[in-house]
Structure formats: structure tokens, C-alpha cells
Nucleic acid binder design. Structure first.
Lengths: 180, 180
DNA sequence: TGCTAGTATATGATTAATCATATATAGGAT
DNA sequence: ATCCTATATATGATTAATCATATACTAGCA
């Protein structure tokens, strides 16, 4: 499971709680990279701990639930380093919109255009989210090796969205220009 | 579940068996669009039948298992037409390679380049698969409305792969040009 | 003779991800 | 006084997808 390795990567940066991982990491910093559900994060932390790849230190709190602070172990670092250098199969992508277009021959042009316009809007919003994350990243003035890699990743994600936007505009124009 | 609607779309074209769907449709014609496991196809056919969206006609065979030929019902067509016009949320994409690059700062440049080169190879292969499907599609000389939509879909899938390839080449050059 | 590929459907098991909900308290807003 | 947000973890249920394996017969190849 890759989520386990994303978490190992985040814990290698610094020790964190499940709550930190969800709010500060997955939601605020790497939502363009990997989305994760809170329940799955906690359950994956349990698995990583029982594997011996992370350890947990409980900070007692009285006004709210205790914080379980997780830290990567040497075995965890070794596992991460190994995983980082292993090629993984391309993820399978299943896009409802493409299925809709594929089977849309019976629909009137206006219905198809409407569908494409809604997708365009959703994709524009997603690109905007990427740009928010980019702004956050660029606000950090250091040009470390890590920063450069983060920007490379953002470049792809943004370019991917731009490819969709360009294609959607072309597709809308194509459908509109048709008689039927 | 979108798979159910992909199957409805395929059964609207013509009646088919589960085996036909798997081999002639999913594997040969729309693998760029939607990959589906045999087991999941059969179980989805059962669900669609109990929903009343398809019906089944059993053709008795003696030399091999009976063929269960499925056909879309009127209720199924209504459901498909409705689904085709409904906007669906963007699918979540999780790419191990991007995670690897994001956390790769500690790796030597050669290791990163090796990773990117393996991804490049995999993406080239995927583009080649798209082109095989495209050749199959272009071999059909009719320029029907359906054909045009199929080609629009293929355009995006190919363009998407090309975006990856361009980015990968740029990323490899960037990493190689660095001192560390 | 044994092996593989093709035709055809079915089921058990597991994984990854999501959704809903529960618990507990503090502090600020309406 | 009530509601919402933030902090913090946990668990039950369900879905979508994948993997493995079972059954059963034919035909062709080595």
C-alpha cells in the first residue's frame, strides 16, 4: 500500500500525530499528490507500528484526547529508502466523463456541451487548488534540493490539469460546430 | 458505480455475454477508457439484472458452459441516458512516482534518474497501446457521430500520456544537470 | 502424452478507500 | 443559551477493485 509509504515519508521529515498528518500534511500540503481519509490514516499508523516501521510516544493531555506522536524507526527508514527506488506499476485511471463522451452519440449536442462545461469548471477549480499549494510552496524562499523536487511534482500536476482544460475547450468547440 | 454504467453503454450497442464484454470490449476496445476485472464484470451483471436494467437469455451449449446473453431493458436505457447527462466528481488520482519524487531529496541523482527512466518506458508503452486502439478505430472508415466521439476520447488519453512523456524528459534533464 | 489456448461462468478472500458516527473538552461567535 | 470550530483518536460498515482458484470441454501443437 502506497499510503503507508507516503506516511513514512512524512514522518521522516519530522515526528507527527495522526491529526497533524491529516490536517497539516495531507489536506494542506500534499492534497495534489495524495488524498487520504482520516480513518485510513489512523489504521495505517497502527499497521506501521505493528510492522516496527514507526514507534509511538503518548503525550498525556487533560483538556483533550492524548496525542500519539509517531516517529520513524531505522527499519522504517530502510523500508522507505528501498521503496523510493522501486518502480511501481502505473495507477489505473477511470474517468466517468470519458465514458460519458464515448457513449454520448444519442445525446443532443447541447447536453454534451453542458457536460463538458461542467467538467471544465471542476478542472479549473482543481488547477486553482494546485496554484494555492504552489503559492504556499513559493512563499518559502529557500531553493533546496527538496524544494526543487516539490516544484517538479507541482509542474506535472498543473500541466496535467492544463492539458485537460485545453482538450475540453477544443472538444466544446468541436461539438458546437457540428450540425446534428 | 460507474462500471455498471459502462456495461449498460456496451449493452446498448448490442447484446453480449460476460465473456464478450471482458474480451471483445474491455480488453480490446476500451482498455484505454476503463479496465475491468472478469470477476467484477460477472458480479456487476448479476446486480444489473436484479435491478431490472438488463435481462438475461441463456443459450444452452453442450460442448462448453451455457452462454448467458444479456440485453439492456427500457429501464436500463432510461438509467443510462440519465447517467450520461449527470456530472460526476473528478476521480482521485494517486501516483506512486510523484510521491517518490516528492520524497527523493535524500537519494543520489542517478537513482532518481533511473526511476524517471523506468516511468518513461512504462508511459511509452502505454502510449503505444493507445495507438494500437487508435489504429483499430481508424481502420473503420465511417465518420459517424459515434466514431467522432470515440476519437475525441482517444485524443485526450493520448495527449495525457504525451504530457507525461514531455514532463519526464524535462525532469530527467533537470536532475542530470544538477551538481549534487 | 502432456501442454497451452480458447470458450464460459462462478465464488472466496483480501485490499484500499470511503462514509458515518462516537467520544471528549475548550473557546469563540451568534 | 446554543452552535460551530478546533483538537484528537477510534471503530463499524460498505464499496470498488483485484487476485486466486474452480469447473468443463475442445482443438491444436510438440
Amino acid at each position: 500500500m502506497s499510503l503507508a509509504h507516503v506516511i513514512l515519508g512524512l514522518l521522516q521529515q519530522q515526528e507527527r500525530t495522526g491529526y497533524d498528518l491529516k490536517t497539516k500534511c495531507f489536506d494542506d500540503c500534499i492534497s495534489h499528490l495524495w488524498q487520504a481519509d482520516q480513518a485510513q490514516i489512523y489504521r495505517t499508523l497502527d499497521k506501521l507500528e505493528s510492522q516496527g516501521w514507526i514507534t509511538c510516544n503518548v503525550e498525556i493531555q487533560h483538556d483533550r484526547p492524548n496525542r500519539k506522536v509517531y516517529r520513524i524507526t531505522e527499519a522504517g527508514e530502510a523500508e522507505l529508502t528501498h521503496w523510493l527506488q522501486t518502480h511501481h506499476p502505473l495507477p489505473v485511471l477511470r474517468e466517468p466523463l470519458l465514458v460519458q463522451l464515448y457513449f454520448a452519440a444519442q445525446l443532443p449536442n447541447e447536453a454534451i456541451v453542458y457536460l463538458l462545461e461542467q467538467e471544465l469548471e471542476a478542472r479549473q477549480e482543481k488547477l486553482a487548488q494546485c496554484e494555492t499549494i504552489e503559492a504556499l510552496s513559493l512563499s518559502n524562499p529557500t531553493a533546496s534540493r527538496e524544494q526543487k523536487l516539490h516544484r517538479l511534482v507541482l509542474d506535472l500536476v498543473k500541466q496535467r490539469e492544463q492539458t485537460y482544460l485545453d482538450w475540453l475547450e477544443k472538444a466544446i468547440a468541436t461539438i458546437r460546430s457540428q450540425s446534428t
